[in-house]
Design a binder for these strands. Structure first.
Lengths: 183, 183
DNA sequence: ACGGACATGTAAGCAGTTACATGATTGC
DNA sequence: GCAATCATGTAACTGCTTACATGTCCGT
């Protein structure tokens, strides 16, 4: 099965919310989808060109003084492609978790070093959890109907929070297992 | 920061457990690390060659009849590289979660279709959870000292289980949110 | 005057995948 | 006799990242 380029769908989806420039797409995604989907700067501009050539988006140049801003809008053809993607069944993404790989090989290192790794990871994930919590408090304290997207954005945030909590739980379990063996 | 090839560490780690052929490494990883780390067949053989050229592994040919099996062993140099990797701080892996991306753009689709997606995902993840549960029952029912690795392999399994449980929790939350809105 | 954000892009490289290719052995 | 598994490898591609390149605007 051929691996298809999924960046296009992320971009089309962003443009379906509102017309945006390449730079704005990058910024918007950094502030919202970054936790589960990243696009690097260098991939956005070429992809927008491809999509324009395919007739999935169209653009117009706007100027603020001399500074150009190329604003892209999705076309019906683009919307059609997006919808056919979103309705397709989704497989579970393969992931590479380097921390788990190191834990898998943990027997090669002293228990103290593993514990140290776990404590350090715990701090990182707790920090992440706090970040999600504060976004939840600031942005989603009231679920209103002012934006049809908001509910779904909230769900993805909840996923981040629940994942972080799960990892914290797992780390604590590992720490306890190691401490028990150490005695 | 240059992105380094991490396949090498997975391979070195496997060889640190015991000498293995390329084919065996593939099979072993499919049966153990697959949930958090995959190596494709085509990447193993070239990487073993590179590692041998670097003096990190050495190989000998074994024969069962006419069928060759090239068994690789890690060298002190290889072990050194592996250990320096495992002790290095680990960043949280970036991940691309296509399902979450679709949920993020969920407002473009009917609620019924989203619910359908969630139910289907729920089934998949529950199946995964059952798989982990059965491995836990069959392989880790008693934690014994017969294998220093076993404890760490158990931890990675627990991670899979806890992750699956967390995703199930999240999906149910999403289903409830959508049902509440639907009324 | 200068750093940082705004804004768009290109070039090179690499990691990893898919597909292809070959042949031996085992089990039904 | 045939399919599945064992076993090793190459070629081509592609998606993505890093690094580079250029210039504007705004705030201090």
């Amino acid at each position: 099965m051929k691996k298809v380029d999924k960046s296009r769908y992320a971009i089309l989806g962003m443009l379906l919310i509102e017309p945006l420039s390449g730079y704005q797409i990058i910024k918007e995604m950094q502030g919202s989808t970054d936790y589960f989907w990243q696009e690097s700067d260098a991939s956005i501009y070429p992809m927008l060109k491809i999509l324009e050539k395919e007739g999935k988006v169209k653009s117009r140049s706007e100027y603020a003084g001399k500074r150009e801003s190329r604003v892209f809008e999705i076309t019906p053809k683009g919307k059609k492609e997006f919808l056919s993607w979103i309705e397709m069944p989704t497989e579970i993404d393969k992931r590479r978790n380097e921390f788990l790989l190191k834990m898998f090989f943990g027997a090669n290192v002293s228990k103290e070093k593993i514990l140290q790794k776990l404590f350090s990871r715990l701090e990182t994930v707790q920090e992440l959890k706090r970040k999600f919590k504060s976004i939840e408090r600031d942005t989603f304290s009231k679920i209103s109907d002012d934006n049809s997207h908001k509910m779904f954005w909230y769900m993805t945030l909840r996923s981040g929070l629940i994942d972080a909590q799960a990892e914290i739980k797992w780390i604590n379990e590992c720490i306890n297992i190691l401490k028990r063996v150490n005695k």
